[in-house]
Amino acid sequence: MKNRKATHIPGLDELMNGGFPGGTINLITGPPGSAKSLFGIEYIYNGARFDDEPGIYLSLEESRDSILRAASNYGLDLTSFEKEGRVYLIDLGKMRAECTASEELEWGLASFETLQDFLKNQLSFSGAKRLVLDSITAVGVYYKSSELFRRELFKFSRFLRDSNITSVLISETSGTGDSRYGIEEFISDSLIKLDYESTAGEYHRTLTVRKMRFTKHDPLKHPFLIMDNGIEVSPDEVIS
């Protein structure tokens, strides 16, 4: 269990042999409303709370208020952790909203290069051990071709690995694929897929650890619930 970054999400670390291996890039994908952002918030919050590890939550689309509200709904007090310098909630979406589309493209506000520059300073300042990028889908919009996107994503992933930070990249899916652009999963060390399913006329949420390098993991599809205090995965239950 050495060098694990536990998510402290009930039931999940059990599926991953204790948590994400340290220094890895982990992709969380799922359709809208599948609790991807909540997953990211919990990862950062729990790291600060239980492991005393500073973390950065970098939002490219959702506003800061929206994230704080979502967190407080589940009793996760991000604000006080922010004051203590244990959580850094960065709303890049606000900056993007103040620019026109052409300005954004011109200045490369949502490019991997810009993010990398931004994070370089931020990481050294905060001493963060965890990072959430919500979402990588927003960055992909900036690139005109998938080849370019892939190349830049690869460079960015090298940066993250060199920074020795355990990161979670959030990607939205719209169809049956594992990720939006179909390439994110190749550069990441792990892939966790969140989804909905309908059984006997009732929708329920599922979680599958599709891929996980450097460690044993449970690849089965498990149900999860969003309870009063956040996500709860049921490692004992399997959706067949």
């Binding site: 329920h204 149900p223 309870m227 959706i239």
Partner: peptide, 20 residues
């Protein structure tokens, strides 16, 4: 999903939630 009702636990219809 699954709801607490005092000390007891209510499950929705599907079996995976009952399992939880």
């Amino acid at each position: 999903g699954v709801e607490r009702d005092g000390h007891s636990l209510k499950s929705s219809k599907i079996l995976s939630n009952l399992g939880i």
